[in-house]
Design a binder for these strands. Sequence first.
DNA 1: TTTTCTAAATTGGTATGACCATTTTCGAAA
DNA 2: TTTCGAAAATGGTCATACCAATTTAGAAAA
Lengths: 234, 234
Amino acid sequence: MTLPLKPIRPKRVSDQVYEQLRELIFRGELKPAEQLMPERELAEAMKVSRTTVRNAINKLVVLGLLEHKQGQGTFVRRQEAGDKNVVAMAMESQGASIQDLLEVRMGLECNAAALAARRADEKDVQFLENSLKEMAHAIRSGQLATQADTSFHMAVAYATKNPLQVYIMRNFYDFLFVGIRESLRQLYEVPGHTDLILEQHTTITEAIRAHDELAALEAMRRHITFVVNFFKNR
Amino acid sequence: MTLPLKPIRPKRVSDQVYEQLRELIFRGELKPAEQLMPERELAEAMKVSRTTVRNAINKLVVLGLLEHKQGQGTFVRRQEAGDKNVVAMAMESQGASIQDLLEVRMGLECNAAALAARRADEKDVQFLENSLKEMAHAIRSGQLATQADTSFHMAVAYATKNPLQVYIMRNFYDFLFVGIRESLRQLYEVPGHTDLILEQHTTITEAIRAHDELAALEAMRRHITFVVNFFKNR
DNA sequence: TTTTCTAAATTGGTATGACCATTTTCGAAA
DNA sequence: TTTCGAAAATGGTCATACCAATTTAGAAAA
């Protein structure tokens, strides 16, 4: 007779550091080509040894997320194609269209929004608001808000506290940037569009902050429907 | 005038160790499941520090060639070729749980059910009904209905007419069969469970046949919620 | 002033040595 | 023979020092 005991898995310190750093990169707080803090500073800030920090960084280097340059520092590496990106593979081999992509996103992200509303803490809301500010800034300075867009949706994914959700979402947005960047840009180039999207993002953020699952789901549904309609009329 | 001078690249010591070890593995001198020499011995044998040896080994661990087991040693890992199942990769590398998997499925499949209700033709409904019969047969003959279960959900995916949806769903169910087959079996071993599931599948099929999107979505939601609750109470 | 060179500061890479955490081993005790 | 516990083996972390490559800044030279 086996009792249903949950497995204890004490994580290695270096793995915890690794996860923190990876999160910074995925969330976009550390942008491509940006320099990482020196190892010595990181060690002091996290109250661990430099050895441990180095192990974590090395892991990210091997995975292609970071890049070492002796005498200069460590930098975030923009990951190019050839990453065995699932979405890209499927889109190509299955001959899927942007419409197909958006349909699947509809299911994934609406559910994610509801989960996020259920579990988001102050920190998650903070990240959502940061991406809103980022997009507002992009609007004022007349730049494209694609980066801020990604940050927002990945912040929603993180708020679900579901690693699989994050992983899959990451694949989607990586593809959006390398696969259909040109198509996506047109969405943001229409005057006033970015303002509308910012408004929709804000509504979603409010619902998540209020822990209103249904409202979050509906707001996300309207948001993605808006995008769907844009690509439909072209 | 630039002469074609080849760049001098003084290799890092840890990289040289890495290459030696990798060579041993590739050549088969270190066979799968075999234990590596202890780090301290390797360091002494190669006249380098244990730190350097560890860096090299860690690199091989990240690449999946070696495997660490604290208190036991480091072992050569047999690498399963052509795995690249997204879900399996994510579940392992991100440390996701069955709960996490089901949560993402909730979003994917509820949406899929609605899309299926919108687009399913006679042939799609036929496939759905075939899987129902298959499950009924499994019940009568006292066999496990896991195969019929997969057939049903893949039939829903096909009915969406969305290649990306099919592709991703395929990955999920492939993983269910190789990754958590044992866990999944318990769901079907409880007396009466398979009957309940068949009933739920039937309800979903009816909604899709009637092209009732909302009913299909709700029926799927109840179905997956049922599965979620089963795994929650264990 | 502008250019050039050199020394210092910065930052990743390696070396030691110690100690911690987990697993196995093996001998003593029951 | 079985059971228990201490010791050994082995990977994980820490602290410190020093090496190697690069950048920076200030002095020296033009």
